[in-house]
């Protein structure tokens, strides 16, 4: 971080025309050097704690590594396709992938829809709006361990409030074990996902809604457009790019999600998603090679989905 003193009058502008081909100016070079020096710590940490591990996971995926034999395995030991093969042919692989996909799509769509409705209702000022807006962010900022526990207790067949009221008011014959029976577990987890992450969509959509110029809607109103028509033809088109972006962000994040499912069901009752499976391989079976292979499969599938999505929506919205 030395040599960073630009001469007087030196502008720190960033949108300057590209430097000419001839020898670069010293000041320009100084700026470049300062930039690299300032960004170096960030880069180093990122590469050390994220970049190298990613590459290493790929290496591990092609090695025979178990926790017990860890000390004996070198970084570039024997390479083998065993792990990938084993992962692809272990029973339940296809099902896990399918569950992850349903979970991700359900969670994404649910959270965006909820977030959209929430953004639309708190758009205009009313008394207590700040408080309502803050409350709506609670599920997102609260610790995942705490909120999953509350849901577990609320949905508990014996002492949960949902079953207590369901039996009292809705006339359910028997308590519903929402999180432990196959028919409801995945749906419940998806509802949880939508509940916990709608604030994320809500924030982005609200910010975009407030940037829509008031004259647009005013003009439509003068032309006799009803509220639903104004939403359909004025607001929605304005929101679509944000919705598309949220779609891809939420899909990626949900696809990678571990905590929520692990804490709610532990992956039981047909809710095993890929990351929970990786964790099982890693800790319960202490099969690092298989865990890495599974993780690589997860990343590859994710990248494929995102590319398909971008091709599909990149054209329609862009």
């Amino acid at each position: 971080m030395t040599t960073t003193v630009p001469g007087p009058g030196r502008s720190p502008t960033r949108d300057r025309p590209a430097p000419p081909r001839r020898r670069p100016l010293t000041l320009r070079r100084r700026e470049s050097r300062a930039g690299l020096a300032l960004v170096a710590p960030t880069l180093l940490v990122t590469i050390a704690v994220i970049g190298i591990p990613i590459v290493w996971t790929v290496v591990l995926a092609f090695q025979r590594v178990r926790l017990a034999t860890l000390r004996k395995t070198g970084l570039f030991g024997e390479f083998t396709m065993d792990n990938i093969d084993r992962v692809l042919h272990t029973p339940g692989f296809a099902e896990t992938l399918w569950v992850t996909l349903i979970y991700s799509i359900g969670g994404t769509v649910g959270s965006i829809l909820l977030g959209l409705v929430a953004a639309l209702v708190v758009r205009r000022p009313f008394r207590g709006r700040t408080l309502v807006r803050a409350s709506m962010l609670l599920p997102y900022v609260a610790p995942v361990v705490a909120v999953t526990f509350v849901w577990q207790v609320m949905l508990d067949p014996q002492l949960g409030i949902v079953n207590a009221w369901g039996q009292r008011l809705l006339g359910w014959d028997t308590p519903v074990p929402f999180l432990t029976q196959e028919s409801t577990a995945l749906a419940t987890v998806i509802v949880f996902e939508a509940w916990r992450y709608f604030p994320f969509a809500f924030l982005f959509l609200l910010a975009r809604l407030q940037a829509v110029p008031g004259e647009l809607e005013e003009a439509a109103r003068v032309d006799g457009a009803t509220p639903t028509q104004r939403f359909r033809h004025i607001l929605l088109p304005q929101l679509l790019p944000v919705i598309a972006l949220l779609g891809v962000l939420r899909f990626i994040m949900t696809f990678n999600k571990f905590d929520d499912v692990y804490l709610l069901t532990g992956g039981a009752a047909g809710t095993e998603v890929v990351s929970v499976r990786v964790y099982e391989f890693l800790t319960a079976r202490t099969d690092i090679g298989a865990a890495a292979a599974q993780a690589v499969v997860l990343a590859v599938v994710l990248i494929v989905f995102v590319l398909i999505y971008l091709r599909f929506f990149g054209r329609r919205v862009g």
Binding site: I50, L60, L298
Partner: peptide, 16 residues
Amino acid sequence: VYLFPSIVIAIPLFVV
């Protein structure tokens, strides 16, 4: 990096 699955990063970190 922000969007990369943390479980992927977790394995080698676990090893290291």
